[in-house]
Each structure stands twice: as C-alpha cells, then as structure tokens.
C-alpha cells in the first residue's frame, strides 16, 4: 500500500456509505470457511458487490472501484464496472490515464490494466498518441520486453500514429541491449508497416548492413540472424546472391566461436542453390579437422558440424541432413514429371 493510503477509514465508518448494506462473496452451495484474509480488502469487495448489484453509477462507486483495484488489479469485474461508471459519468479521461500510470508503476503485467488503458486511449483518439508512446517508453525503462506494453505500442502506432521516430527508438533500445528480441521484432514491424518507408525492398540494403554489424558484435544472438533472414523473406534470389550474407558466414566461421547460427544460415544458403567458395569450405573443414569427413556434400558436412556443436538439438540437425537427400529426390521426381 502507498503511504497516502495507509490511514484508510473502514467503509462501514464513512458516513457517505451508511446507506449501503455490504454483500459478502457467495461461494456456492458449499458453506465457506470464515474468511480470515485482509479485512480491509474483504470489506471493500463487500461494498463493491453491493454497488455492482445495484448498478450504482456514481462518483463514490468510481472511487470504490479505485480502492478495489488498488487491492487487486486482477479483478476483471471491477474493471469492467469501472468503465460502465466512467461512461455514465462522462468522466474526464485524462484523470483516468493518471490512474493507470500510477498502477502501472507498481505492476505493469496485468492484462486488465492494459485493456483499460487502450479503451481510454481509443476514446481520446489521436491526441493521445504522444502520451501513449511516452507511457510505454517509461515501462520499457524497467522491462524492455514487456509483452503488454509492446502490444499497446503497436496498437498506438497503427491507430493513433506517431511512426516518425520509431526506427530511431528501436536503434536506441538495441543499443541498450542488442539481445532484446522485442526490439528486433519492433524493428521488423516498423520496416514492414511504417506508411512512409516504402517496405522491405527499399530499405533492405541499409538494414542488412545494420544487422550484420549487430551479428558480428554478438554472433550467439539468435534475433538478428532471424531478422536478417526476414529481410530476404520474399526474395530468395537476393538472399543467395548477396555476397554480404556469405561473407558474414565466413567471418563468423573463421572466428570459430558461436558458429551455430552462421552454420544454420549457410545451410539455408546451400539448400537454395548457393555455391560455396573455397574459403568457406576451408573454414568449415577447420571446424572439425579430426573427422576428415568423407561426405563430399558441403551441406551434409554443415549438418554434421551442427550435430556436434549443438547436441541438445541433434535430432533437428539430423533431420535437416536427412531432408537434404529428399530435396534431391524431390528434384528428381520433378524432372520425371516435366
């Protein structure tokens, strides 16, 4: 509890509530054990039930829902009734933003809170965009991967606007933590949905450079590897022929540490028809010198290295290897059909 809420006067002793008979929780046909938990909470909920059942849409009822939410922000019915009251009273929703911000500073992972926030923002319309973006930014200061806040932010951008600085904001978050998958996801969200950027094709080059830089700092970071793959999503030809991609693989393989994602990307390249350079073959060879593998197929060798380097997922890499031959078989089948 906050210090300002410490000196709580029981509702039963507040004159403005004297006309209300509290309603205890009905726990169904089975007699309930006497309730021993926080009396204050119990009392608040008993009065809440009374106003809820009477459908009393008043200022004091609104105040009561604030108290009930402070005790337990997870109670869905209380929130729902609060909105009914706000609508009935035609209340100033800017106060409501403050109410939510105060709550979020204590617990930002509550579904009801975010749902309520969106309801308020939607009512306020585009004037709310800036404050909503700022609100989520503040949440990210403490929890940069907060799923609710990200979902809210995306909704704000798409419905209220404020795209202008979003790519720069992603830069900033990734500077703080390059492993932040939520920020990588947001980056993809921006480049694919920002109405002023013109889509992936237009921005691919600069994004590829950015991503490669990020990968080279921390090659064990799965997010940028997937992001890089996403940049070529609908353009396999560019993926296979862009020398930046294969050079990246070579660089990471040559360093000999954290090679799993580089090998995986190389495998994707090979499966899509990429012809490996001698440098790449040598780098691969030097990763497992002892095996002196008989398998002449480079893709199969990549799979073998992955089986050794990533034993937890050995079955996945074995499956990748076994589907290499079925790729060939598919090819043969297609030949016979055409």
């Amino acid at each position: 509890m906050d210090s300002d809420e410490d000196e709580r006067i029981p509702l039963s002793q507040r004159p403005e509530w004297s006309d209300i008979t509290p309603v205890p929780q009905d726990d169904g046909p089975n007699p309930v054990v006497p309730i021993a938990y926080s009396e204050e909470f119990a009392e608040t909920m008993d009065y809440f039930r009374a106003v809820y059942l009477a459908d009393e849409r008043s200022h004091r009822a609104l105040q009561l829902t604030s108290e009930a939410i402070h005790f337990n922000a997870g109670n869905y019915t209380v929130w729902q009734f609060r909105r009914v009251i706000l609508e009935a009273l035609n209340a100033d929703l800017h106060d409501e933003l403050e109410f939510v911000e105060h709550l979020a500073s204590k617990n930002s992972k509550n579904y009801q809170l975010w749902h309520h926030r969106r309801w308020v923002a939607e009512k306020l319309g585009s004037e709310a965009a800036g404050r909503e973006l700022e609100f989520t930014k503040n949440i990210f200061l403490n929890d940069a991967k907060n799923y609710h806040a990200w979902s809210h932010r995306q909704w704000v951008l798409q419905n209220l606007g404020g795209w202008e600085d979003e790519l720069a904001y992603c830069d900033k978050l990734l500077e703080d933590d390059i492993f932040n998958n939520s920020a990588w996801n947001q980056r993809y969200f921006v480049i694919t949905r920002h109405p002023g950027l013109g889509g992936i094709e237009g921005i691919r080059d600069s994004e590829v450079n950015y991503t490669i830089k990020a990968i080279l700092t921390k090659p064990e970071n799965e997010s940028p590897w997937r992001y890089l793959r996403g940049l070529y999503k609908n353009n396999m030809k560019a993926f296979v022929t862009d020398s930046k991609v294969s050079t990246l693989c070579l660089k990471v393989l040559t360093s000999k540490v954290n090679c799993v994602f580089a090998l995986s990307l190389l495998l994707d390249l090979l499966v899509h028809g990429f012809e490996p350079t001698q440098d790449l073959k040598n780098a691969l060879e030097s990763l497992i010198p002892e095996s002196n593998n008989l398998d002449s197929d480079v893709a199969a060798r990549v799979c073998l290295v992955l089986e050794i380097m990533d034993p937890m997922r050995v079955n996945y890499w074995r499956w990748r290897k076994s589907s290499l031959s079925s790729h060939v078989e598919d090819g043969v089948k297609n030949l016979s059909v055409h």
Binding site: V32, V33, F41, G74, N75, Y76
Partner: peptide, 15 residues
C-alpha cells in the same frame, strides 16, 4: 480447494 481463507485465494477469487 479447502483453503479459501488465505490471501492468495482472495486474490484469485475472480478466476
């Protein structure tokens, strides 16, 4: 199921 009198159970009453 029998323990309906503690704070945890009060907080989860709604679900």
């Amino acid at each position: 199921e029998k323990k309906k009198d503690d704070i945890e159970s009060a907080l989860t009453e709604h679900l």
